[in-house]
């Protein structure tokens, strides 16, 4: 996969608070090439999570334009962006965000079913095997450890062969050792599927594994550096 997968042009985000307006992001512009891995770093409150939400089409910017997988997000309505997410995007979250009512396997099946895949169960089973949880298919999230839950979440994120995978502090709730394994897994699958990886992290080790780091401070991009 070549070319540009994500483009942000002069993106700004303001929210109304108590009658006033608070600027969270200001004049953020960059592009991400397909297959690239990008870490968005910065202190708490620098706007990292807001930016990843905008890039993934979970929210719309107050100003500027974002293009994801060739589609201009501003031009899509809420359901259109949902469709785009279903087709092109995968997510991994700090708090795992598995559906508590579904088993591990069913959680992985969910995006496949939403996209209308007929062989959801088989494909989900393969992914569960790939993340080393083939013994845990029928367990509910609360019966799994934090690391196991995050592996299920990774399997779910890769289930639909997304063009872009967004990860929000994927190791934030895990101890260092478990976090390390999760990072390994994330990059292995990323390499196997040629997915573009965009993640937000505080973890220097994780950021260091990415090909490129975007530094945010008070809502502005202050540095954009490539790894050596």
């Amino acid at each position: 996969m070549t070319g540009t997968i994500v483009t942000a042009e002069a993106v700004g985000k303001q929210v109304d608070i108590h009658g006033g307006s608070l600027t969270i992001l200001q004049d953020v512009s960059f592009t991400v090439a397909a297959g690239e891995s990008l870490a968005i770093v910065g202190v708490s409150g620098s706007g990292k999570s807001t930016l990843i939400g905008l890039l993934a089409g979970l929210d719309l910017p107050s100003s500027g334009r974002i293009t994801l997988a060739g589609e201009e997000l501003n031009a899509l309505d809420e359901d259109g962006r949902a469709r785009l997410r279903g087709q092109k995007v995968g997510f991994v979250f700090q708090t795992f965000q598995l559906l508590p009512g579904l088993t591990a396997l069913e959680n992985v099946m969910l995006p496949l079913e939403l996209a209308g895949h007929a062989d959801a169960a088989a494909r989900a089973g393969q992914l569960m095997q790939r993340v080393g949880l083939e013994q845990r298919l029928d367990h509910y999230p609360k019966q799994l450890s934090g690391g196991e839950q995050q592996r299920v979440a990774i399997a779910r994120a890769f289930a639909t062969h997304p063009a872009v995978l967004f990860a929000d502090e994927p190791t934030g709730n895990l101890d260092a050792r478990t976090g390390g394994r999760i990072i390994d897994l994330l990059f292995e699958l990323n390499a196997e599927q040629g997915t573009t990886l965009i993640l937000v992290t505080h973890d220097d080790k994780l950021a260091g594994r990415c090909g490129r780091r975007l530094h945010l401070d008070a809502g502005r991009v202050v540095a954009d550096e490539q790894s050596q």
Partner: peptide, 10 residues
């Protein structure tokens, strides 16, 4: 989560 995974309002 379902919305995030691509489910429409419908």
């Amino acid at each position: 989560m379902l919305r995030c995974l691509g489910a429409s309002q419908g």
